[in-house]
């Protein structure tokens, strides 16, 4: 993973079949963009939305926004960085809409998991063993359950830093904020996460002992 978000060179455009947009040349073709980055966008969106999202729909929305903004794209950042930034904002907006919906229909919350999302339905990825799958699923559920309780900006920073493995600079570039702000968000996000994780642990221990009691 690159440590900094360098400007995209002509060679990089060529490697993705995307024409360089600056200097009066034609803007990148949305088809080429989609072919080159659809799976990256799906991965980012899946990572950011967690266990309650419809990744296919998010990917569609990201490329709609990208198509609309293509004429404004001047190659000041990598295409992938530009798309990642759009993905973050699209997911944040989708989560805001979800929260508004849950306010009126709380029963819907948690009924959909990433494992029954459409994007996953026809995923041709390698299947782990049943036990591994169960463990991973449970870990994902717990992590996103806690992440979903955090403030949006802390949540996004934590996902990008901890799960996506981006550097502070990259998180700052993507979220259009200063590096100092990223560290503050990460620290506060971590504090909140640890606090909630402790609460979750103690509640699960209580439940376990209750279940063991005759």
């Amino acid at each position: 993973m690159p440590s900094t978000l360098a400007r995209r060179t002509g060679a990089e455009y060529a490697s993705h079949g995307v024409e360089r947009p600056s200097g009066g040349e034609p803007a990148p073709d949305i088809g080429a963009l989609y072919r080159a980055h659809a799976n990256d966008v799906a991965r980012w969106a899946g990572r950011l939305i967690g266990h309650l999202g419809d990744v296919e729909d998010l990917v569609h929305q990201v490329f709609i926004v990208a198509q609309r903004r293509l004429p404004e794209f001047r190659g000041e950042a990598k295409v992938s960085t530009w798309l990642h930034g759009i993905t973050i904002r699209v997911v944040q907006e989708a989560r805001r809409r979800q929260r508004r919906w849950w306010r009126w229909s709380p029963d819907d919350r948690g009924t959909k998991s990433i494992d029954d999302g459409r994007a996953n339905d026809d995923c041709a990825c390698e299947q782990p063993s049943a036990l591994e799958l169960l463990e991973k699923r449970e870990a994902g559920r717990i992590v996103y359950q806690i992440l979903d309780q955090l403030d949006e900006k802390y949540r996004t920073a934590l996902i990008l830093f901890e799960l996506e493995g981006l550097t502070g600079h990259e998180v700052a570039d993507l979220t259009k904020t200063s590096l100092a702000n990223v560290w503050v968000r990460l620290l506060r996000g971590r504090q909140q996460f640890v606090k909630r994780y402790r609460a979750w642990e103690s509640s699960s221990v209580r439940e376990e002992s209750k279940a063991k009691a005759p």
Binding site: N39, A42, W44, G117, D122
Partner: peptide, 10 residues
């Protein structure tokens, strides 16, 4: 342990 998000299927 958090699983990697799935790729887009065909």
């Amino acid at each position: 342990k958090v699983p990697a998000p799935p790729l887009l299927g065909h």
